[in-house]
């Protein structure tokens, strides 16, 4: 019962409550395809003038694997191949270049041409998609992450997750890949999650495999106190995804490219709960605050301003961090 009290007091949002009180209520089923299919999200974002990683091409049939795939990769040797309807980072292949007739993966391993083709074929047959439905493979720009993350990521690209509730950013974190996570930015696979103060864009606390950490496990560089560049821009980008999709409870994944700035990587209608651990903060008080004010917030600027004002000090001043 003590354990129960601790979670409740911290305002932790549990999975059941997230489903019953947030995603089921604020996210209409018919809007899900907009975010479950990354190609649709991308088209939508482009239409609205939001920046996304450039799409080089789409492979949607076995025929194209033989005829289109390698032509595309010849033009863009640095590219990311991902399933359009994949979830949880499954099925993403990052190519960093070519070696003779072969490809080089982000972990340095060389892949044969047909190995890449096989991977795309697996994507097409729905191996990584929700419910195993047939899928498309998208080939897109490989993000060159901003130098601010140079010392604190291993192999992969760090991404910034912002939870947006009714158009108001409520919590955010940056996920830093590690050797253990194999370059992936997924917390339960071993990536480091660092909470970000919504007001200033400064990292405040970090968690790795459920324990608090101060430095990156692979590089030893300090994670705390990192300032994310162009933070206000990121917040606006994230908040704008509410209008974009109409989803009330949303996880926005953004990457910071060194030349192109913040890009929307993907949207998530059922964002995970680990962000609370990374911030050492429960989501519930913040969600409640937004619920109370939602009808007074009319423009995007108002919503972002509200977030910056309301969620400003909460994490930054927590003595335990």
């Amino acid at each position: 019962m003590k354990a129960w009290g601790g979670l409740k007091q911290s305002g932790i949002l549990g999975l059941n409550q997230r489903n019953a009180a947030y995603t089921l209520v604020y996210n209409q089923r018919r809007l899900y395809p907009l975010v479950d299919d990354k190609l649709k999200t991308k088209a939508l974002a482009l239409q609205a003038g939001l920046s996304v990683p450039e799409l080089y091409g789409v492979i949607d049939s076995e025929y194209q694997i033989r005829h289109k795939l390698h032509d595309l990769l010849a033009i863009h040797p640095e590219a990311v191949i991902k399933p359009s309807k994949g979830s949880g980072g499954k099925g993403i292949l990052v190519l960093t270049g070519r070696f003779r007739e072969r490809y080089r993966k982000n972990n340095g391993i060389i892949m044969e041409k047909e190995e890449v083709g096989y991977h795309v074929s697996n994507i097409l047959s729905g191996m990584y998609s929700l419910g195993g439905q047939p899928d498309r493979a998208m080939i897109e720009y490989r993000v060159q992450f901003d130098p601010v993350f140079e010392g604190v990521s291993y192999m992969g690209v760090p991404d910034i997750r912002i939870i947006v509730f009714l158009g108001v950013p409520v919590m955010s974190m940056v996920r830093l890949p590690t050797r253990e996570s194999n370059g992936k930015a997924n917390l339960h696979q071993g990536a480091v999650g660092a909470g970000i103060d919504l007001a200033g864009g400064v990292t405040v606390a970090a968690v790795w495999k459920n324990t608090a950490v101060e430095e990156h496990p692979d590089t030893g560089a300090s994670i705390k106190g990192l300032t994310i560049p162009r933070w206000p821009e990121l917040l606006k980008l994230a908040a704008g995804c509410y209008e974009l999709t109409g989803l009330g409870y949303l996880g926005v994944d953004i990457v910071l490219d060194q030349s192109k700035g913040p890009l929307i990587l993907e949207l998530n209608a059922r964002p995970g709960l680990s962000i609370q651990i990374a911030n050492r903060q429960g989501l519930l008080p913040r969600l409640d605050a937004v619920k109370k004010q939602a009808h007074d917030l009319h423009s995007l600027a108002e919503r972002v301003a509200f977030a910056v004002k309301t969620f400003k000090t909460a994490a930054a001043c927590n003595p335990n961090n």
């Binding site: 003590k2 354990a3 009290g5 601790g6 979670l7 007091q9 911290s10 932790i12 968690v207 459920n210 324990t211 608090a212 709960l273 609370q276 651990i277 050492r280 429960g282 335990n320």
Partner: peptide, 9 residues
């Protein structure tokens, strides 16, 4: 999963 919040408490 959220045991951090309990130890803090």
């Amino acid at each position: 999963r959220f045991k951090v919040f309990n130890t803090k408490e």
